[in-house]
Every structure is written in C-alpha cells, then in structure tokens.
Design a protein around this nucleic acid. Structure first.
Length: 141
DNA sequence: GCCAACGTTGGC
DNA sequence: GCCAACGTTGGC
C-alpha cells in the first residue's frame, strides 16, 4: 500500500471507539506533545491509523483513515497544535492487546511499546501486517 | 494506588 | 545553560 500507517491513542473514558463509530467523523484533538504533533503533521489524506485504547482496555480496537490533513487545533488557545480529521474504516474482529504486542517479536519493537507516553506514533508495514494477522482481519487495501 | 518515563518550568 | 522540582501520562 502507498498510504502510511499510524497509531493514535485515546482513553476510552474520554473518547471510546464506540463514539468514533457513532459520530462517523471527528477531529483528533488534544495532542500537546511536539513529537506527536510532528507525526500529525506528517499524516497525509488516505493514511490509516490504528485506534488504541489507553489506560483502560489497552488494546487496538479499530482502524481509521485520515480524510483531512493537519490544521490548527480549534480547542487550543494558542500554540502550534494541530488536529487531523479521521473516519472509521473497520472494527478489528479480535482486538489486539498490549501484552500480545509486547510478546510478539515484530510488534515488541513498535514505538507504541517502546515509548508508552507518545500518543501518536508511526506503524511500519511489517507491524501493520502482523497486527492485522493477530486481529484475524484482512485489510481492504 | 504506585511508579517509571518524560516533558516543562524556574532558580541559579 | 544546567539541573532540581514538579506535573502528566499510562502501564502494572
């Protein structure tokens, strides 16, 4: 695939996957970390992102697609913060938990695992394939 | 509930 | 410019 793959985190208490499905489209706000912001800026329309539940659940539950590239965060008073717009693509048949990722030779090297506080991180092609496999899912790409 | 990782702030 | 103090995130 040409599109790149990312992973975005959300606490289910604040914005669960069920709400993403319900709303159909949202802007991804709240990023206040420069590394995460740079990742948002690097996203292109058509890129995909796994949707990860942090804190509670601690698992990848779905895939979204970027439909609007970075623009200023409407919820930020000031600063360089940006958001992107995403739409849900699919729920994973089997969510993939953090423990599973950690025990997998490919996925244990993920930015998600190595840098637990980074809320927007890149996913490699190999990691993407492996996660789809673990999720019992054939990506429509 | 605790703690590690890490970013930010402010004194010097 | 360094570093201690502190706040936040997120896993356990």
């Amino acid at each position: 695939m040409n599109a790149r793959v990312w992973l975005i985190k959300s606490e289910p208490v604040k914005y669960p996957w069920s709400k993403m499905l319900e709303e159909g489209r949202t802007f991804w706000d709240g990023v206040r970390n420069h590394q995460a912001k740079n990742n948002l800026l690097a996203m292109r329309s058509g890129d995909f992102a796994f949707f990860y539940h942090s804190n509670e659940g601690m698992e990848i539950v779905g895939l979204v697609q970027v439909v609007q590239e970075a623009y200023p965060d409407p919820t930020a008073q000031e600063g360089p913060w940006v958001v992107v717009d995403v739409v849900p693509v699919a729920s994973l048949p089997k969510p993939v938990g953090l423990a599973q990722l950690k025990s997998d030779p490919i996925c244990s090297q993920m930015a998600l695992v190595r840098q637990s506080r980074l809320s927007v991180c890149p996913v490699t092609e190999a990691e993407f394939q492996r996660i789809c496999e673990m999720a019992d899912w054939n990506p429509p790409v």
